Computed example of a mutant assay.
Amino acid sequence: MSETALTGDVLRYTAFSADPDGGNPAGVVLDASGLTDDAMLAIAAGLGYSESVFLTAAPDGAGPPGRTFAVRYFSPKAEVPFCGHATVAAAVALAERIGAGDLVFETRAGTVPVSVAAPADGGPPRATLTSVEPRVEPVADADLTEALAALDWPAADLDPALPSRIAYAGARHLVVGAATRARLAELRYDYARLEALMHRLDLTTLQLVWRESADVFHVRDPFPVGGVVEDPATGAAAAAFGAYARELGLVPVPSVLTLHQGTELGRPGVLTVELRADDRRVRVSGAGTPIGA
């Protein structure tokens, strides 16, 4: 199909699951050329998903014609620089209309290449995004203490093998390691207190992590700054976590990691994180599928 198939309709897709009831839902507008900032924010707020994504055709010369898009992301509260699950959702929606293959998303965080493959078994498409250049930085002791107080997590419940850091691969996330699966499962936090800290540190989510095995992790992501208590599947945080795992030497490189998220919310999803020896950027992949009306 051609670009004429890209309408301004609000589509609904889920990412990181082949099941419409799993993963993380996103609103997707494939032609947002007629929308103002206020209109995009209103659509995102009306849908109530953790993020919605809005695409317009990129200027000539910006990348492959017809497959390069300027992309913006809005939570119910504000615009965010990058969102992984909405990227996957948009890429799958595009693939269903203009065909699988390579795409280029020009985001406010930078250029994000995305590839979409159609499985041979006829299942839903699978998208892989390549992050912008990542970085990892320390978190001040006082800020970590405040985060733990907002979470109501005693310091003794942390995993010393997963030291807390702020990681970035398009958006900033505070990574905090839980010592047990039970600790991760117990999440009742002080919404206003955590939101205030996250605004001060310019964080998009907290990436709360429990390590099941050498390459399998379970994660949860509080997202009060976006107006959502918890994000069901967080591609940007998965990319940041990949950078974190590499920087701290927690996994070998190259490596492929599996992150499970959304189980506690009744929307299980699976995020695949790939680290390559020849490229510090992180690749995050997952399935995507439309959500019925």
Rank of each mutant, 00 (worst) to 15 (best):
L151W: 07
L94A: 03
G23R: 03
Q207E: 15
D9S: 14
A293C: 10
L203R: 05
E274D: 14
R67T: 09
S2T: 15
D202L: 10
G249W: 11
A293I: 05
S75A: 14
R280K: 12
D159V: 02
L11M: 00
R108G: 01
G66D: 13
E146G: 05
R135S: 14
G22N: 02
A95Q: 03
P64W: 10
I98F: 01
A240L: 01
V139S: 03
L151E: 03
G34D: 06
M40V: 04
T205L: 09
C83I: 05
Q207F: 12
A182E: 14
T180A: 07
G227T: 13
G110K: 00
T234H: 07
E186Y: 05
R280N: 15
T7E: 14
T128W: 03
R220T: 04
F217H: 14
R72H: 08
G286E: 07
E79Q: 15
T68N: 02
H218D: 13
R135E: 11
P138V: 03
V273T: 06
T56E: 08
S50G: 02
T14F: 00
R280T: 15
Q261D: 03
I98K: 06
L257Y: 08
P224A: 06
T128H: 04
P59M: 00
V112A: 11
E51V: 01
L94N: 00
A44Q: 06
S115L: 01
M198L: 05
T14P: 00
P254D: 07
L184M: 00
A15S: 14
V53C: 05
V28H: 09
G110W: 09
T128I: 06
R126A: 09
P154V: 06
D159E: 14
L174M: 12
T36K: 06
S75I: 11
G286Y: 11
R172M: 02
D157L: 09
L194I: 13
L194W: 13
T128D: 04
A237I: 05
T205H: 14
G22F: 07
D278T: 08
A15C: 06
R246S: 11
Y13E: 09
T180Y: 05
T263C: 06
S164C: 11
V116W: 08
G122K: 04
E96C: 04
A233V: 04
D278F: 04
G48I: 07
D141W: 13
L275K: 09
R280D: 15
A149Q: 15
V216Q: 04
A182I: 10
L30P: 10
H260D: 10
A214V: 04
A167S: 12
V114K: 00
P59Y: 01
T205Y: 09
P222T: 10
A32E: 06
R97Y: 08
A178C: 15
F105Q: 06
T111N: 11
S164E: 12
M1P: 11
C83M: 07
R126T: 11
D31E: 04
V28M: 01
H173T: 10
T289S: 06
P64I: 12
T4K: 12
A185C: 08
A169Y: 08
R267I: 05
E186G: 12
A32I: 02
V136F: 05
E106A: 12
V270K: 05
S131V: 07
T289N: 03
S131A: 04
Q261E: 13
S255V: 13
A237F: 08
A233M: 09
